[in-house]
């Protein structure tokens, strides 16, 4: 089978609204796109009935491929495995549950055709439950504050991207949730496509508290990675410098009291606070320097740029000592 024009990756994790229904939605959404496509179902671990379902579907439809994990690795890992196994130049991801109307898929592909590197569905909140709206609003609020991006809703799993963009937004760990943001920070063109909710989506979802804590830490992590990967000292230096500075001021104040006022400061808790702040600030700075060393050591392995396209053209009047060069545009080296 030759490579299709579009790969749809569906990570099948614990939350699943029935694969047959999802596939029906995909087929409906892509019916009018005029592209050949494959569907990669990635079953995340020990979910035997789902794997059987997926395999049964693959039996009757040759566009469907099934991958499965030996144990549960999470939705993000499933997504990544699916993306890596897919073959088409354009990739579409969809969760194993209903989120948006099928027509949105076509709009996402249209956005990609119009030049976007990444397009994602941004759910309108009208018909969603109040609790979902609230938690999404809070999440996106922090996101906007922390990362200075102006997206309304990034957490929907319905996204389209070009294969070239994949390397830039390597969705390692739990960061698949932040894919549009990571892409935007890397300078890729990201388009937000407003999407109507699917009729079956939108029941209130309450997660365990640990999920919220994890989500918040992910946000902090992404913030750090996105802003300071190449220059960790800028982050640690700023934080450490502030702490150090406050500690130093306290110590200077106490020293002044001792020297000019002749007061005994050895028993003042403020002294301990000052010294502690100086120490913490100093340590933070030292960690930043360690970060710089690590970054520098890795700089040789990771080029900070990718060359997308090269066009070479020859001079009109060739000087005498000309050397052979290739004329045709080169494709980007990996």
């Amino acid at each position: 089978m030759s490579a299709p024009e579009l790969s749809v990756v569906v990570p099948v994790s614990k939350r699943c609204d029935g694969l047959a229904g999802i596939l029906a939605l995909l087929h409906e959404g892509l019916k009018h796109s005029g592209r050949s496509y494959e569907v990669v179902l990635v079953v995340d671990g020990d979910l035997h009935d789902r794997l059987a379902q997926a395999q049964a579907l693959a039996e009757v439809d040759e566009r469907i491929r099934v991958l499965s994990f030996a144990r549960q690795f999470g939705e993000g890992a499933a997504l990544r495995a699916g993306l890596m196994a897919s073959r088409a130049p354009i990739l579409l991801t969809h969760p194993a549950y209903f989120q948006v109307q099928p027509a949105v898929l076509g709009e996402l592909l249209q956005a990609i055709d119009d030049g976007a590197d990444v397009a994602f569905a941004s759910r309108s909140s009208e018909r969603d439950s109040a609790f979902n709206r609230l938690q999404r609003w809070v999440f996106n609020f922090f996101l906007r504050r922390a990362l200075w991006v102006r997206f309304r809703d990034i957490s929907s799993g319905v996204r389209a991207l070009k294969r070239e963009a994949l390397e830039d937004v390597a969705v390692h760990g739990p960061f698949h949730r932040f894919l549009p943001v990571l892409a935007a920070m890397k300078g890729l063109t990201v388009r937000e496509v407003p999407a109507a909710l699917h009729p079956q989506a939108g029941g209130a979802r309450v997660y365990r508290p640990s999920v919220y804590v994890k989500r918040f830490l992910d946000l902090v992590n992404v913030f750090f990675l996105a802003r300071f990967t190449y220059k960790p000292l800028r982050f640690f230096g700023l934080v450490g410098g502030l702490i150090f500075g406050v500690g130093l001021l306290i110590c200077l104040y106490l020293t002044a009291l001792k020297v000019f006022g002749g007061e005994a400061i050895g028993d003042r808790p403020l002294l301990l606070l000052g010294v502690l702040l100086v120490a913490v600030g100093f340590q933070t700075l030292a960690i930043g320097l360690l970060g710089e060393l690590i970054t520098f050591a890795h700089a040789a392995k990771h080029k900070p740029y990718t060359i997308r396209e090269v066009v070479r053209r020859e001079p009109e009047r060739a000087p005498e000592a000309s050397s052979p060069v290739d004329e045709q545009p080169e494709s980007a080296p990996k």
Binding site: R308, R312, R313, P315
Partner: peptide, 14 residues
């Protein structure tokens, strides 16, 4: 339009 130079135009991915 290159006159006397060889011209190389490269576009970065981002």
């Amino acid at each position: 339009q290159p006159g006397s130079s060889r011209l190389v135009c490269a576009r970065l991915g981002r």
